[in-house]
Design a protein around this nucleic acid. Structure first.
Lengths: 333, 333
DNA sequence: AGATAGAATGTAACCGCTTACATTTTATCT
DNA sequence: AGATAAAATGTAAGCGGTTACATTCTATCT
């Protein structure tokens, strides 16, 4: 690979001039620029961005830590995020933390060594105080889907409580009173918040949570299946089911169908996240939509503002879910 | 951030010794190592991997170019790939080429400037000769889901033709003779190969492709819907439908249901890729399974062998699909 | 022609770390 | 105690590019 030294020799100019041609077009005469560019072309010169990063103390990379690379949720967010960062001439370095505290800490350490210009963290395992302390360093940090009060303007989050409230209220307004609930893992705060919203809506209708109609799942399809079986085995009747995410809803629907039950004939179902496959299910699944692409985009904008000094960007920190009604819910019979 | 100079001063040793402690444990006495490690700890030293990369002429990063970051297919592959690379102490730099030649070329250029130790390319737009030439450079390249004859041992590919053959033959063996086919975009060679397998299976039963029962889609759900409508509008009867991927199959199923048709009652359906949501559909979709996680893992191993000199790795270059039978196909009535 | 100011270009020291070769220390043998 | 070899450590020159400050060139004015 040709280096800047070879380009400077061939063009008959100094290293600094070659560097200026590459980075700053204002202080180079057109004639000199032509000579340099011709030399670059002849040599097939490709700048070494590693050297550039070291010399300029800027890596032009953004570290992104997400829970998983697979699954229907994170891909869309990463895609939107990557597009925005890439459009600004930078790239992202992605790593997965698997929602595990130790792995998340390793990942953060890893990205830190990598001297990313900024970090976007979507983490569950590590506590707030660690994150607050970490974000006091000189590297800008953006927290995705997490609200840390002391760092509110570095957080891009969804009002999960409102989503749980909306899901529940929509069913209550359709006349349902016996509501079953399959939550995500309750150590994850988005699960807890969604459940809180559920309880708030129940409260508004003078109802309380029936523990027998409640099952804690893992956000995976199989736990939705297990939840359905658990709920049916309880013998307590319910006319609607709220699931903490769509994958569990799909599992629950499958388990119900295995028992000869129909949706929404026997009971209505509503999921959470509105991932693409909600449209493919039969009946099509109603769901609480999270604007995850928009949130990813917004995280990218935070980074452009904080690490790269971009001005005039409108940044929204708090997102609200919306209810997407499909065929899986109906009025109570 | 503390540097190696500060550590060396505090520990009272040379830079080289600090570097040796970090990288090579064999030529440092235990006493000296302790001193250095204590100094590192006191200073909260984190090595700058950018400087390390420049000095060692090795970035410990692998560039990965995929068509998309979103969608059910690529996430699982990326996840498996990242796990394997990460386990070896390296990381991946991911970028999306959107199956567009220009964007793919930009991405390859970008990753090249980044001085990744190796590249894993999952590309559709750029031609073989460009890829062959590019792979002659000193940077090892692995091609995912693409078979380039001159570079066979750098390719990790799936026998798409066999997948198309298997999908079709399974239906023929169930007695179906009028088969409809919704292909992916035919400029993509995996679509073309799948169609070729379809034709081969038809041929074995003395049948030919009925152009009226053929629709070229885009691999997206909406094109599956359009394809279904097109096929039904043709008025030519068919007892089974083969789709070039699962998303189109889901769309086709939805469109059929909109017309009051049932699956497999009115016709059987089989998809391709066996993505997770195939299990959530009703009826559950039969599909041709691609071991994409295994392929991603294998690409990672190719890189470990070619770029990092790992020996003794068993590497498989050619993968075969398998048929996953579910409720969406049945014998002809 | 000479003076002045701004534009353009060059020089040299880094950036944080690696590593080949040189030097010192240590352990062992006689 | 002296010699020898291996282990341990140090020195110095990069790696490819950036940039502050110095120098040269160019354009304009008198």
């Amino acid at each position: 690979m040709a280096t800047i030294y070879e380009v400077s020799e061939l063009a008959g100019v100094s290293l600094a001039t070659v560097s200026r041609v590459m980075n700053d077009s204002s202080k180079v005469s057109p004639k000199t620029r032509e000579k340099v560019e011709a030399a670059m072309k002849e040599l097939g010169y490709r700048p070494n961005l590693i050297a550039q990063s070291l010399a300029s103390n800027r890596s032009n990379s953004v570290g992104v830590l997400v829970p998983e690379l697979h699954g229907p949720f994170f891909g869309a967010m990463l895609s939107a995020l990557e597009d925005e960062i890439r459009a600004s001439g930078r790239h992202i370095i992605i790593t997965a933390g698997h929602s595990d505290e130790t792995k998340e800490r390793e990942s953060i350490e890893f990205l830190s060594k990598r001297r990313c210009d900024a970090l976007i963290l979507y983490v569950y395992g590590v506590p707030d105080d660690f994150l607050v302390e970490f974000s006091e360093s000189s590297v800008p940090v953006v927290f995705l889907n997490r609200l840390i009060p002391k760092k509110a303007n570095q957080c891009i989050s969804l009002d999960n409580e409102l989503g749980g409230y909306m899901a529940t209220k929509s069913l209550l307004e359709l006349g349902h009173r016996e509501l079953a609930y399959i939550s995500g893992p309750l150590w994850k705060r988005d699960s807890t918040k969604r459940l809180m919203g559920h309880k708030r809506a129940l409260g508004e209708f003078g109802l309380g949570l029936n523990e027998q109609l409640m099952f804690e799942g893992t956000y995976e399809e199989s736990s939705g299946r297990r939840g359905m079986k658990h709920l049916l085995a309880s013998g307590v009747p319910f006319s609607a089911l709220i699931c903490g995410n769509d994958e569990m809803a799909a599992g629950a629907m499958g388990a119900a169908r295995d028992r000869g039950l129909t949706i929404p004939g026997d009971f209505s179902v509503i999921g959470f996240d509105n991932v693409p496959f909600t449209r493919y299910l039969y009946p099509e699944l109603s769901s609480i939509d999270c604007p995850i692409e928009e949130m990813g985009r917004m995280a990218a904008r935070c980074v452009l503002r904080d690490a790269y000094g971009r001005e005039g960007l409108e940044i929204k920190n708090r997102f609200e879910p919306t209810l997407v009604r499909r065929a899986s819910i109906s009025s109570i019979q």
